[in-house]
Amino acid sequence: MTILHVTNRDGDIREIDAPDGRSLMETLRNAGYDEIEALCGGSCACATCHVYVDGEVASRLQPMSEDENDLLDAAEDRNERSRLSCQIKLSAGLSGLKITIAPES
C-alpha cells in the first residue's frame, strides 16, 4: 500500500491508502475528492486534474511528458510543483507523497 497525504481545497489534510497500478487521478477520484473533475478521464486532454506535489518522494516521480507540460499551461495557478494527476502512476515507492489539490480554474 502507498500512503498519500492529501490536502483538499478547504485545506483539510487526510491520509489515504492508494492501490498500486492506478493513476493518482483515479486514486483521488475513488477516495471521494470530487474537486478532481478529470473530465477527459485521464487522456491528458483537459487539465482538470491539476495538483501540486510535495515531499521528498516527489523527486522520484517520473518526469513530465512534453504534452503534460504544455497542457499544464492551461491550468491557472501553475507553479513548479504542478502536475496532472492522471499522468502519475502510483507505486509503493511513492509512499509519503504529499498532494494538494489545485484551486478551481
Binding site: R22, R29, N30, G32, D34, C40, G41, S43
Partner: peptide, 24 residues
C-alpha cells in the same frame, strides 16, 4: 468517451470508467 477508445481496446476495465465510485 472510452467506449470507443480504451474500453473498446481492452486497455481499461469498466470499473475505471465510473465517474465516481459507487460509495460516493
Amino acid at each position: 468517451p472510452p467506449l470507443s477508445k480504451d474500453y473498446f481496446l481492452g486497455e481499461k476495465t469498466f470499473d475505471r470508467l465510473l465517474i465516481r465510485p459507487e460509495s460516493f
